[in-house]
Nucleic acid binder design. Structure first.
Lengths: 192, 192
DNA sequence: ATACGATACGGAGGCCACCTCCGCTTTGGC
DNA sequence: GCCAAAGCGGAGGTGGCCTCCGTATCGTAT
């Protein structure tokens, strides 16, 4: 039940570990400054390591994204349990989705990429998915049990919708908020 | 009130017009076969023209997409008026959004690209946007007037949500359907 | 301390897509 | 038929992705 720790690929040898940290730090900065489509060569340069080193450690851009955002992803999961403890079922779900959204907004469109990846099966996202799903499922089930969310809804659907909201990169925070409100209304049981 | 004709950039000189048609045809085929991220050089080769010709006529991939999909875009607009005539207000809106979605699904993720572009101001999308908006606004307003959609909702929000649904490229049609249903429920007035 | 196998480094270079530029060709009005 | 305007095309510059392999570094066993 408790979330599993996300796997870290941080190597053990001293020089490798140092370069790993340099790369992740450089990537975090670069992603924050220029979005997640920054060139990988730029990141290697910024980190002061060769491009070969980057590619050996992170075979794909996604692998690098993973390493950069492990912490944030974990914190998204953790927050779910906080909300579950402190809020009424539907409010907890709403708050969690809102935080998921805000997280994607500030960090490029990570939530979007994450949402897409939830359907794929990279080794990393396997665990990540388990954690996010476990957390989200808990909130969703409780909201369902309280009769505040239609019982036939799947977590994957909800996540996909929320992820889709800020897929288009440059959305205004207020608009994102309104869109989320629409979705939240859509989750509630039919008026009948 | 009637939709304006979408602008065509088709040139008048004989050779230019011929190449224009070759390019648009080749692009339509290529996009259908390999998705909208086919390399532009491939398309030029397929059309049997030089890459320079392609770029002179279509300065960006988007420009080419526009030319390829003018007809389809127009038909999306037209359908709105059909639905308006034949269906009850909310059903008309629902049907139109469904068709908008299916359209994006079959043709790569054009609806997604279109949705993003709705926020931008390319000269083409200006007119396109006007047409889509006019059509959508009509349906939305009627649904509001019938009390079946909350009055504070903006068309842009609705379009964005629907566009977001199939942003992630590889979504299953049934899932897309479910997501749209959630959104549709979210449009209805509060149960209170 | 040294030696040595395992591990990691780095950047040159191949590949490919994007896009520009300009000398040559075609068109169509006169 | 002439010729200016319009159009053509592809060579080549830029830059990102990724691989490969000779060299450097690390950590352990002696």
């Amino acid at each position: 039940m408790a979330p599993q720790p996300l796997p870290s690929t941080r190597p053990t040898r001293a020089d490798a570990a140092r370069n790993y940290d340099l790369l992740v730090t450089a990537a975090r900065e670069a992603f924050a400054e220029h979005g997640t489509d920054t060139s990988l060569e730029d990141i290697a340069r910024r980190a002061g390591v060769g491009i070969g080193t980057l590619y050996r450690r992170f075979p794909s851009r996604t692998a690098l994204l993973e390493a950069v955002y492990v912490d944030e992803i974990q914190s998204v999961c953790d927050r779910a349990y906080d909300f579950d403890r402190d809020l009424e079922p539907f409010e907890a779900l709403a708050a969690w989705l809102r935080s998921f959204l805000g997280y994607g907004l500030s960090k490029g469109s990570l939530a979007g990429e994450l949402t897409i990846a939830l359907g794929k099966d990279s080794p990393f996202f396997k665990v990540c998915k388990v954690n996010v799903q476990e957390a989200g499922q808990l909130l969703l089930d409780k909201a369902k049990a309280a009769g505040e969310v239609r019982s036939e809804l799947e977590l994957a659907d909800v996540m996909r919708l929320v992820g889709g909201i800020n897929m288009g990169r440059d959305i205004e925070p207020e608009q994102a908020q309104r869109l989320l409100d629409i979705v939240l209304c859509g989750l509630r049981p039919a008026a009948s």
